[in-house]
Design a protein around this nucleic acid. Structure first.
Length: 429
RNA sequence: GGAGAGGUGGCCGAGUGGCCGAAGGCAGCGGUUUGCUAAACCGCCGUAGGGACAAAAUCUCUACCGAGGGUUCAAAUCCCUCCCUCUCCGCCA
């Protein structure tokens, strides 16, 4: 969301910079709606001022034991006019916020311009792509062969796009979660959180999932709760409607949570395996910073996610998303893509974004610099960032595929072995 | 699920129809005093949205006492609905 004043005064430049991102925004209405809100505000405030003065006059007359009936009658008529004017104003405000809440964030100047994923820019690569004497198998074949993945039973108990992991597969998932959380809390300075997996509407609006993307979310039938599509939502909303003290920033949080996504509109994509599910596990990183340090923080946070891939010895690359491929709320995004031998391509395993003040403005997250209530210590919106550190299921996929052996077994990366009770290799039981 | 209590500024806490954006205290900031610290004393000390000004400073208006409605010339205060917190009972992992 934007500062209304800034939006009104810079409508055309903003529209230009957004380009294709803002295609579906009714820009011409916006100008009109914003003007309407302003004139109706003035109207209501002026009427209220009259009413306040009139009421004081009534009070004065009654104290002086003078007749006030006429003044009271006049004020009653004024009150009716105010009610009308307020109704008009409320409509104008709703119409305006309806539009402004659907305007995507402005891309940062360093974001490559482009219309879709093909114009993303590779920033760097890490690791060596493994070579295989026979064609590498996809992870679903490996997992079912080892008896650690069971998609048939997942379909029976839930449906398509769900998974069941058993035995060493389930333990590997848990090992990854623990390894990621331990690394981020002890090496990277994040505070671990166990948040709610269901959140209310204001929280979803605060981080930008609502109002525009409701069809992507699972919603409870009888309560106005939504299943979180990412821990970004509860973690960022931890400080909704709060003013943080500047010397406590940056605040860094990490959480492991299941994530729930409708995946509406993704029919036919990644229908097999663990890549695209209605429910998956993810370890998330969230950071609140001052505006002057948020891009530095984006690099750092991205590095924290990269550290996990490096520790697991998984080859990956970092991609800067172009303007056309970025998410709605983001000002700049790096995707981490891990190498999948069966597909002979890099696939997204983490997405690290700086939202600047976009979410903070929606969610009312501010900070006050330095100490004290001095006049120069004005409050301002924080910048929020988040990144996957990492998507656990996709990490498991990458391990199965990159560490598969000719005999069908899978070697376990050495950093995970302590988490696997010393197990070095997953073999058919 | 049933019964009750309560939600007021950064915190505590007064306030049952007008003189209340809100007493008082604490914390914070500035100052006086002081060899230094402490104490004492004085002053300042909420947020948001408009308007005036070229702009800043400033001035001014409006709104906000959990949220939304209602009554009234006038609501923190009266009424209704909802949300949240706490206590007791029931149920439950």
């Amino acid at each position: 969301m934007y500062d209304l004043k800034a939006l009104r005064e810079n409508l055309d430049p903003i529209r230009t910079v957004l380009g294709r991102r803002g295609n579906d925004v009714p820009w011409d209405d916006l100008r009109k709606l914003s003007e309407e809100r302003r004139t109706h505000t003035m109207q209501v405030e002026q009427l209220r001022q009259e009413l306040n003065k009139g009421s004081e006059e009534v009070a004065r007359l009654r104290r002086a034991k003078e007749p006030a009936d006429e003044a009271m009658a006049a004020m009653k008529r004024l009150g009716d006019r105010i009610k009308d004017a307020e109704g008009t104003l409320r409509n104008a405000e709703e119409a305006l916020s309806d539009v402004t809440l659907r305007i995507p964030n402005l891309p940062h100047a360093s974001v490559p311009v482009g219309s879709d994923a093909s114009e993303n820019v590779e920033v760097r690569r890490w690791g060596t792509i493994p070579s295989f004497s026979t064609p590498p198998k996809p992870h679903w074949d490996i997992g079912e062969g080892l008896g650690i993945l069971d998609f048939d039973r997942a379909a029976k108990i839930a449906g398509a796009r769900f998974s069941v992991m058993t035995g060493a597969g389930a333990r590997l998932e848990r090992a990854l979660i623990n390894f990621m959380l331990d690394t981020h809390t002890t090496q990277h300075g994040y505070r671990e959180v166990v948040p709610p997996l269901m959140v209310n509407r204001p929280s979803m609006t605060g981080t930008g999932q609502l109002p525009k993307f409701e069809e992507d979310l699972f919603r409870l039938k009888d309560e106005d709760y939504f299943l979180i599509p990412t821990a970004e939502v509860p973690l960022t909303n931890l400080h909704r409607e709060e003013t943080l003290s500047g010397d406590r920033l940056p605040l860094r949080y990490t959480a492991y949570t299941p994530c729930f996504r409708r995946e509406a509109g993704s029919y036919g994509k990644d229908t097999r395996g663990l890549i695209r599910l209605h429910q998956f596990n993810k370890v998330e990183l969230v950071s609140f910073t001052t505006p002057d340090r948020s891009y530095e923080e984006l690099e750092r946070l991205t590095g924290h996610a990269e550290m996990i891939l490096q520790s697991l010895e998984l080859p990956y690359r970092v991609v800067a998303l172009c303007t056309g491929d970025m998410g709605f709320s983001s000002a700049k995004t790096y995707d981490l893509e891990v190498w999948l031998p069966s597909q002979q391509q890099y696939r997204e395993i983490s997405s690290c974004s700086n939202f600047e003040a976009f979410q903070a403005r929606r969610a009312g997250i501010k900070y006050r610099s330095s100490s004290g209530g001095k006049k120069d210590a004005k409050s301002d919106f924080v910048h929020t960032l988040n990144g996957s550190g990492l998507a656990v299921g996709r990490t498991l996929v990458a391990i199965l595929e990159n560490f598969q052996q000719p005999d069908g077994s899978v070697e376990i990366p050495s950093v995970l072995r302590p988490y696997m009770g010393g197990l070095e290799r997953i073999e058919k039981e």
